[in-house]
Amino acid sequence: MIHFVLLISRQGKVRLTKWYSPYSQKERSKVIRELSGVILTRGPKLCNFVEWRGFKVVYRRYASLYFCMCIDADDNELEVLEIIHHFVEILDRYFGSVCELDLIFNFHKAYYILDEILIAGELQESSKKVVARVIAAQDTLVETAKEQASSLSNMIAQATK
């Protein structure tokens, strides 16, 4: 299973963290610190796997951003590597040529999308289309609620004038 997902920038800034195994707050910071040290220093043209504390961390760099997923030592590494890419493709489709800035200012969107791809550290949906549809539906729900709210507050505003 995937124990956690980390998105770290080349400067070591955390862009997203998702923990499927229980780590305390202290452990989380320690893990991030340790792994940044290990992964960000790796040169190009090396393999995408790092052995760490008896686990394996599968990572892939996209421009300035490192996507990392920690798995058990006997899990299938390449499968997870392509889960990362699957995630990136969906982000790319949603934001339209995604870049780090998109993920900084819309980090909450990244969380929504990740929740449609992984649950319990396992792949939930491998169709990009299905995920895109679900996210679009969620966005609509939020928009509608907002419109209702604003029309409601307009009405109240007018009534109390």
């Binding site: 963290t17 998702k18 229980p22 305390s24 969380y111 929740d115 969620q138 729900l141 939020v142 609620a145």
Partner: peptide, 20 residues
């Protein structure tokens, strides 16, 4: 009661807290 808030509650809770 409403979806937008509930959604945020669920997602952020599952990011900040662990099972214990």
């Amino acid at each position: 009661p409403k979806y937008p808030e509930k959604q945020v509650g669920y997602i952020v809770t599952s990011c900040l807290l662990n099972e214990n």
